[in-house]
Design a protein around this nucleic acid. Structure first.
Lengths: 152, 152
DNA sequence: ACTATTTAAGAGTAATATGTCTTAAATATA
DNA sequence: TATATTTAAGACATATTACTCTTAAATAGT
């Protein structure tokens, strides 16, 4: 997998949050239930996103998490980097540490291109873009596909 | 990482084998030394490639492994599939099991495209292509970059 | 036939990723 | 103030991947 499970969980949760578009706090319990992800595990992941200031959190009743800004201002790339780190956008496909344009591996050129395409794709797509598509076309965000968007 | 370490080791070893272009057997010891990969671990990986009939092996003195056919006839895609399996070319980027054109996830369309690009790229590149480039331009195939191509 | 060399196969170990559980801290509401 | 609810934090457990080690089987050369 290109993205770790943690990263994918983070993306799915933030997409769902974006679809709520009410500005209020949503409990992680709600997210973990709807997405069928372990509550404690998801909590840890969302903590990373909070630390990266993509989310804001509040403890206590009525607490939960919310996007720190407009869903149109948060890109998929930001979420990915917050969880999997920025290296996936620079790493050699053969995992060779010193690989770069100076002394590349045979696959460097071809991979650098697709890698940049992927980064560009994630960079130019906001949580709003994806969550809107998800809602409007009733797309899948769970394994079973049974899911209702935008109902906090 | 898109590809597992095993897969990457397999690619590096087959690229090196392709550069030998002498048709004879090369000992795994030689490959593991040159590529700085654990001998036993590489042995296991190359066994998978032998099982997939991309390599042929012979035991005993003068034994070793060799490409089962012309290096121009073996694609990077074949090596990848032999080790990491074919699923990486069909899997959902969010890891959602039922994701497909019928009931896709929001990222399905964009990812399917890049995924197909990657497959196409690997499909249209042979071991010969890559090893020739590696030799001719003295490209990196080890971490330290100190390496001499094509000397069995 | 004997020996040295090499791959094959499987058991075992280590490291990392994934997932679970418990306790602490904050906060809304009564 | 007391209670219920929620995130924060860290310890713990399991699964997967990566790597090591030992023994067996095959084969070339003497």
């Amino acid at each position: 997998m290109l993205l770790s499970k943690s990263c994918v969980y983070g993306l799915r949760a933030t997409l769902l949050l974006a679809s709520y578009q009410n500005g209020g706090y949503t409990s992680i319990k709600d997210l973990s239930n709807k997405l069928d992800i372990s509550f404690h595990f998801l909590t840890k992941i969302l903590q990373q996103l909070t630390a990266a200031e993509l989310l804001e959190s509040m403890k206590g009743p009525k607490g939960g998490v919310r996007l720190s800004g407009e869903s149109s201002d948060i890109t998929l790339r930001e979420v990915v980097i917050a969880i999997d780190g920025p290296d996936i956008f620079t790493e050699c496909v053969l995992g060779l540490p010193g690989c770069g344009s100076e002394k590349p591996c045979p696959m460097h050129a071809m991979w650098a291109e697709t890698r940049d395409d992927i980064e560009q794709m994630l960079q130019t797509t906001s949580l709003e873009d994806m969550s809107k598509e998800g809602m409007e076309q009733d797309l899948r965000i769970t394994a079973d596909g049974h899911f209702v968007w935008g109902e906090p």
